[in-house]
Structures are given as structure tokens and as C-alpha cells.
Amino acid sequence: MQNILTLIAAPHNAVLTPKLTSAVRDALAMARGLVGPPDWLDPGIACDIPFDNVDVREAEKLTRAALRNAPVDVIALPTSPNRRKRALVADMESTIIRNEMLDELAYLAEIGEQVAEITRKAMNGELDFYEAIRERVSLLKGQPATLLDDAAKRIKLMPGAQALLATLKSHGVYCALVSGGFDYYTQPIAEQLGFDEQQANHMILENEAIAGIREPILGREAKLEALQRVARERGITVEDCITVGDGANDLAMLGAAGMGVAYHAKPKVQEQARINIRHGDLTALLYLQGYRADEIYGRG
């Protein structure tokens, strides 16, 4: 069939049942759709339903109504021969890790609320990213460099991050970590998880204190350029890539990739992104590509 509807629940809340998938199939059939049998990628967690004769946006709308607010992500996409992507380009903060590292630094410096509000507005597209990062770093100027290590101790990986990277790497997928944050944190996270490369901004330290940020600042355009470069260097196209992020500076790379995923994203990002994961963890990116439970590291 020409389209696939993928339903994904969080692994810790495996609420996806045959009863729910039957309700979804009935809803599509009532709209005069041709509906195939469910293909369970992971019982209780992820399922594919092939369908025809219903627009993908309408299929998503009908499915959400049939699910009756069940915490299940709904993604309908045209069937594609390159569903499994050959490269991942991922944002880091609030995506691969739970943290926003400038916020962590600010809380340690006791200016947390002030900096966090700037972060929130920048990630939701309410402030210019470049001016926002300069302002936040300027507020930290003069703080001891030891805060960088103290903040690193607070880092928590996003659920599913290790399984996502281990699974993709085992299938030969090239993985790039691109961040509007700082290489002080992207480098160790990239090494820990097995990313093939990382890029981020560089914080300037002078006299063992935070002094500024190196220009030019890497943001929205740099992330898009990284996606294009990774595809070019790997001899593939951006259609062969999957991207993931949560903030406004991720929108360009989300829109350009063959599969761009807004992950637990800011409201304005959710509005503009074609694919949203609101309930699942990062293994949702694997189910979206048709990976099955026995192919996922730590899940089978």
C-alpha cells in the first residue's frame, strides 16, 4: 500500500493494544480507506498499519480521535523504499540529554531563573538564538571555570539514547551530534554514545574563568549545513537522513531531512514539524524506520 501509519507508545507505558489498533483501522475504513492488517514492531509499544485512499494528514486526525487521548504517537507517511535512513543528525540538549547546559551553569551560579527564561524564549523562537546565547554567556562571564565540570556531573541521558545509538551503529548508520551548545559537553557525550562526529560552540576561558563564546556562533544554519555536509560526504542525499531536535534552531534541519523528528519539542516547533514524538522515548526514531524489537539494542 502507498502509506504507513505508525503508532508508538512509551516503552515504560506500553498502552498500545489490539483493541486500540482495531479502533484505528475501523476509523480509516469508515473514511473509505483501504486498510491492511497491523504489523506489530514491538507488542504494546509500536505497530505499523498500511493504508490507502486517505490523505496522511487526515489519517492522523482520524487516528487520534479513535485513540481517545491514549498516550500514543501517531505518524502517517508515504511508503518509502529508503525508510531506514543511512545517517542521523541529532541535536543534543533536551534531545540526546535531558539538560540545557547553560541553564545548569546558571543555576550553579545562582542566576538560574534569569537564564532559563532566556533559554525558553530562544528555543521557542521568541528570541533570536544568536543574541540569546551571547546574552546568557555574558551573564556567566567571570564565573569560575570549575562550574563547567560541576554542571557536567548533572547530565542525564534522555531515555532511549543509548539504545538508539547502539542500534543505528550496529546497522552501519553514520551518526552526527550537532549542538548550539558547547563542545565542552558534546565531546564526552559523543564519545560515550558512539557518535561518529560532533560539532558545537566553544566557550572561551581566561584566567580560569568564563570569558565569552567564540565567534562565529553555530546555530540554525550550521545545523542545516551539517546535515547537507554529512549527506554529501557519505555519498547520500538528505532524503536518506533522519534528524531530531526540540528547539526553533532545529527547524531547518528537521524540514530538510527525509525524516525530521521534533522530539518532545517546544510548542512552536511542534506546530511546524511534520513528525512529532510527544510520548515515546528516543527508540521511537527506530520504530519510525521500521526497526523491530529484536533489532533494537536492549529491547528484543
Rank of each mutant, 00 (worst) to 15 (best):
A10Y: 01
A10K: 04
A10M: 02
A10W: 00
A10D: 14
P11K: 06
P11V: 11
H12R: 15
H12P: 02
H12V: 14
H12M: 14
N13S: 12
N13R: 14
A14C: 00
A14Q: 06
A14G: 00
V15E: 04
V15P: 01
V15R: 04
L16E: 12
L16C: 12
L16G: 10
L16S: 07
L16W: 12
T17I: 03
T17K: 02
T17V: 06
T17E: 05
P18E: 12
P18A: 11
P18T: 05
P18Y: 09
P18S: 12
K19R: 15
L20R: 10
T21S: 09
S22D: 15
S22F: 07
S22W: 00
A23F: 11
A23H: 13
A23P: 04
V24P: 03
V24L: 03
V24K: 01
V24F: 05
V24Y: 03
R25Q: 15
R25F: 00
D26P: 00
A27G: 09
A27P: 07
A27H: 05
L28F: 14
A29K: 06
A29V: 07
M30C: 00
M30W: 00
M30Y: 10
A31E: 07
A31F: 11
A31R: 10
R32D: 14
R32K: 14
G33P: 07
L34A: 14
L34H: 10
L34Y: 00
L34P: 00
V35Q: 03
V35S: 03
V35W: 06
G36L: 03
G36A: 06
G36Y: 01
P37M: 04
P37Y: 11
P38T: 09
P38G: 02
D39M: 08
W40R: 10
L41D: 07
L41H: 08
L41W: 09
L41C: 11
D42T: 10
D42G: 01
D42R: 03
D42W: 11
P43Y: 08
P43G: 09
G44E: 13
G44W: 13
G44N: 13
I45C: 08
I45G: 07
I45Y: 08
I45E: 07
I45W: 08
A46E: 06
A46V: 04
A46Y: 04
C47M: 02
C47K: 01
C47N: 05
D48I: 04
D48H: 15
D48T: 07
D48R: 15
I49V: 15
I49D: 01
F51S: 10
F51P: 05
F51W: 07
F51T: 07
N53M: 12
N53L: 14
V54T: 10
V54W: 03
V54H: 04
D55V: 01
D55T: 02
D55A: 14
D55G: 06
V56Y: 09
V56K: 11
V56H: 13
R57K: 11
R57C: 04
R57W: 02
R57Q: 13
R57V: 13
R57D: 15
E58I: 11
E58Y: 00
E58R: 13
A59R: 01
E60Y: 05
E60V: 04
E60H: 01
K61P: 00
K61H: 10
K61N: 00
